[in-house]
Design a binder for these strands. Structure first.
Lengths: 180, 180
DNA sequence: GTCTATACTAAGATAGAC
DNA sequence: GTCTATCTTAGTATAGAC
């Protein structure tokens, strides 16, 4: 909501960073506090438990995702192309929030999995009017999921995710198969 | 290698089961030992450390994946169709091993991520001769990744993964776009 | 609003009995 | 080959000072 960065936001940033780069196991309250530059007690003033900290991440994700769904809907180059070309982004706030919550979801956290499913469903609704049928929607969504999971798993390393011209060729292929 | 199930295999089964159903955090040595019906000391006789236990899972994955790559190559209905139609399986030994190692990978374990990347690459090699070009290979691989990640994340719950006729329609769409 | 100190629990790992 | 007992470290959480 405002600057300068409150301790609360710094804690959330640190939690997110640790989840992305070192995984759920490493993102303990102590590590998060250290990474955020506050004490354990200080962290626990803002988030009274680990669950509250996780809930804070979900709230951040919901806010950023709502903005992105609007961006998908109104993208000048068309929703499908925009949606797919941004699926492999890894540095932007939304992508970081998704990856962080994804780490929690794969860690067995059912609430986190439900948050991701909700975001995914809202993208599906935004894309539905622009594809031929349900199979085409599945195609677009699953290619996006595939790009995301490879990006998130490989943490910036040169992995199997298509980039540049390869990504552009893939998007042309998907659009041909799916566009209404 | 043989029956009756040695304690070693029971431990590995328990580790796999806990990773899949409750995530990495819950899969502690103590929980794994309890789930396997052995003591912590008994477990540590077979796997001297947590790392050794993880390495045991990688070995299991490598063995099952090698078998599956052969099945993809020789599938009567064609490699693409077979590959995609089995991407959403969740109960078979290979799928369970992949999901378990996936949990570790998303938990920030670089070795686990490398194992998954290697398996993925071997599938890519098997499929390459059967697709039109690199973009088509990307399409098939990413749709498969998407199906897998949704299946693994949703743990059997009725999720966003296409099944039955919806899956068949998706596969026809992908084959039309990708097949050589 | 943030810190230190501390309580309690559980983690990974070792030693040695059976 | 498997168990019990124990060590050390680290996790979540609370109380109370500043």
């Amino acid at each position: 909501m405002s600057r300068p960065p409150h301790a609360r936001e710094k804690v959330l940033d640190a939690f997110e960073r640790l989840l992305i780069t070192e995984g759920e196991r490493a993102a303990t309250l102590e590590s998060v506090a250290r990474e955020a530059g506050v004490s354990k007690g200080g962290l626990l003033y803002h988030f009274g438990s680990r669950e509250a900290l996780e809930e804070g991440m979900y709230a951040r994700l919901r806010m950023l995702a709502a903005e992105d769904v609007e961006a998908v809907r109104t993208a000048p180059e068309g929703p499908i192309s925009y949606f797919l070309s941004t699926s492999g982004d890894v540095g932007l706030p939304l992508d970081r929030a998704i990856t962080a919550v994804g780490r929690l979801a794969h860690g067995g956290n059912a609430a986190a999995a439900a948050e991701l499913a909700a975001v995914r469903a809202s993208w599906g609704e935004a894309l539905r009017p622009h594809v031929r049928d349900d199979a085409a929607l599945d195609l677009v969504m699953l290619v996006s999921d595939g790009i995301y999971v490879n990006s998130a798993l490989m943490n910036d390393l040169p992995g199997p995710v298509p980039r540049g011209e390869a990504l552009a060729a893939l998007i042309r292929l998907v659009e041909t198969a799916a566009r209404d």
